[in-house]
Simulated scan of single mutants.
Amino acid sequence: MKQMTDEHIMQKVAEGNVAMLQILFERYHKQIYIFLYKMSGDKMLSEDLTQEVFYRLIKYKSSYNFDKKFVTWIYTIARNNLNTHYQRQKENHLALEGFEHKLVEPQASKNEEYSHLMNVLNRMEASDRELLILNRFQEIKYAEMAEILGSTTGAVKTKVCRALKKLKTLYLQKV
């Protein structure tokens, strides 16, 4: 039996079969949580925002554009939720573009290289960090990232390349 596409499932949800959302939840909740966690460094906030993402999927199910990929829509919702949270909390004047946070490192299985990488990533500008998290950790394709970020594929490739160069430079510096 052929697996249903995310877009087909979302169409069923939009038509009123909200039970189908369980499939999308199973496919995406961990990825969305990890994205939000890597951006915010806050486990509880990431859990809350992940729940909010799926609440919004139900609430705005009729606004989903079936010509677009589902993955771009869900990450756009996740980004917007995080941005809205920081705007509401007034933790930073620039919201998502410049908020500072303390990255909580992974549990016991961490090693020095991973820890160093995460510390370097944490020191980068939020826009560069977001590009690298979406592309390298979440494995979102350039075309999908372009749609999420409201940009072109070429511009996103260039920005990711520049962010990787910055990451490499910072990573190789002695702390």
Rank of each mutant, 00 (worst) to 15 (best):
Q51C: 10
L21G: 03
L167H: 05
V13E: 01
L132E: 05
M4Q: 13
Q87L: 10
K12V: 00
F70V: 04
L117M: 14
A143E: 15
I34E: 05
D128K: 09
M39E: 06
K30N: 11
Q173H: 12
H116K: 14
S127F: 10
R136A: 09
E100L: 09
V71D: 03
I74V: 15
K59D: 15
Q22T: 14
L96K: 03
E113F: 08
E130R: 03
E100S: 07
N135G: 01
D128S: 13
N119H: 14
V71P: 00
L94T: 10
A146N: 08
R123E: 15
I77E: 01
T158V: 10
N135I: 00
T158E: 14
L82R: 02
Y75W: 04
Q51N: 15
K102Q: 14
A155F: 08
L170M: 11
F70C: 02
A126C: 11
E47C: 04
L45W: 05
L117H: 10
S62F: 03
A163L: 08
I74D: 00
L49K: 01
R136F: 05
T152M: 05
I148L: 07
A19L: 09
F35E: 02
T5K: 07
M4K: 09
I58T: 13
L172H: 12
A78V: 05
N111C: 11
M118L: 15
N122L: 05
L49T: 06
E130L: 12
E105A: 03
V13P: 07
P106E: 07
S40E: 02
E147W: 01
A108H: 13
L132A: 03
N111E: 09
C161S: 14
L167F: 15
M10K: 01
Q89A: 11
K12N: 08
E113R: 07
N119M: 08
K110Y: 05
H116G: 00
E144P: 00
M145E: 04
K157R: 14
K30D: 12
V18Q: 11
M20K: 08
Q22E: 15
Q173T: 10
A95Y: 12
T152H: 06
H93A: 10
N135E: 06
L49Y: 06
M39F: 04
